[in-house]
Nucleic acid binder design. Structure first.
Lengths: 236, 236
DNA sequence: CCCAAAACATGATAAATATCATGTACCTAC
DNA sequence: GTAGGTACATGATATTTATCATGTTTTGGG
């Protein structure tokens, strides 16, 4: 967990136009820049843990993070995938609760911590930021509700196809234009789909047999995007 | 759809201390009171439909409403249950999208419509309301994420028990202290649980055989609350 | 480089759940 | 009140999905 505070400023951050802070006033951005504490997390490290109290929010400068929830029987459910420009930890903070999910780094990630008091006070004094925050929450709520419906109604074959497309939307491809730009274990994919690991492995093999994907360890290439969309059977 | 505009004011509304507007400034409440349009919807009527554009938000004065989402194959998924004091339609409005769910009245309900422009402008000028709104969105997001995890990981027996407890939390009991204060069809309960109607009917019969509930048409009595909690197997 | 542990893969089987089929009860409109 | 439609109930069956078992491959640490 290396610091990189001095290296970056919020005013020059690559994410400044796309993150939820894009509409915030410069004076507040300057204040956030002053108080932020930046760190680098290595793959597998935990940014925060389910059950602990939030002391602020985390803004991802660069990297990939999973937000996951432990089910009653200890099985992981991956709730969200995050990338540069995304903000983490606001849900628990706004609800005034402990974290209901853990944030675990998928690959080396630079994160800036913003203290709770500052975040809340900026939120209360900057209507632009507040409005963007509401939009963000609304969008997340929408995604969660759609996922809920699909989980209840769609077979796992469709859900796995949809999940692969979702990963592509979130992290995109590598330079070759077809390899998903993230390494997830089969178990993690299963925990994203909401199914048993073996089922995911089996279906991925089928997708490979059908020529839709190519598998090379944790590298996944999307060969037939259209057919994958058809398999996902999306309407909405 | 009868008007009842003149009968109620926001300043005297029974929900004024508990709704999301509880922290809003009086001047804005007065403005909302001026512009609101109140209606009574009868059981089965639709307040708004999935796919149409939001023109404002709806504040429930009294009554019961379901928010449901049509899956790709046309199967209903009930996303939320709403009661007096709840606000409807903010999700689509804040995201700037069409409604992703329909609001259908479960029993005669009084609703006040607040025009989009007014709602947005109050939201931008009243930090208290904005903050309450963020809390509301965060809470809904949390509920959705927990439901997601349970849907992915818990068997339907546990989910049905949890759903019955959820209905109880939302609408409470009738005067006898044990009959759920809402009439839902078996199909609606199934669409809340996320399962086939027959499975829900079968399990309700089992719950009855086990003495946990009593069934009399759409009247459902919770006889053994503790055992129902145990059956739901809740940890979080 | 090698070893042990973890991850991956696949077959066999079991369990959970959905679907189909049929009969009954119950509204509700006439 | 009764006919016809809908909701409820329940059994039989089919399908989906999970679990268990076993072998193989990959990976990371010494």
């Amino acid at each position: 967990m290396t610091h990189f505070h001095d290296a970056v400023t919020c005013q020059s951050c690559a994410q400044r136009f796309t993150s939820v802070f894009c509409k915030a006033k410069q004076e507040f951005i300057a204040e956030i820049n002053e108080q932020k504490v930046c760190n680098i997390y290595k793959k597998g490290q935990t940014i925060f843990n389910e059950g602990s109290y939030p002391f602020g929010v985390y803004c991802i400068n660069e990297g990939k993070v999973k937000l996951s929830h432990l089910g009653d029987d200890g099985k992981e459910q991956i709730i969200r995938l995050l990338r540069g420009g995304d903000v983490l930890g606001y849900r628990a903070l706004l609800s005034g609760e402990r974290y209901s999910a853990s944030a675990i780094v998928l690959e080396d990630t630079q994160v800036c911590f913003i203290p709770k008091e500052l975040f809340i006070s900026v939120l209360k004094n900057d209507a632009g930021l507040a409005f963007e925050m509401m939009k963000l929450l609304s969008d997340e709520l929408h995604k969660a509700e759609v996922k809920l419906t699909h989980l209840a109604q769609k077979p796992i074959r469709e859900r796995l196809a949809e999940t692969l497309l979702f990963i592509k939307e979130t992290y995109g491809f590598e330079a070759d234009g077809e390899t998903l730009s993230v390494r997830l274990s089969r178990e993690e994919i299963a925990n994203l789909v909401g199914t048993a690991t073996e089922s995911t492995i089996r279906l991925l093999s089928e997708f490979k047999k059908d020529g839709m994907v190519e598998l090379d360890g944790k590298k996944i290439k999307i060969l037939k995007h259209k057919e994958l969309v058809r398999t996902a059977n999306l309407q909405d």
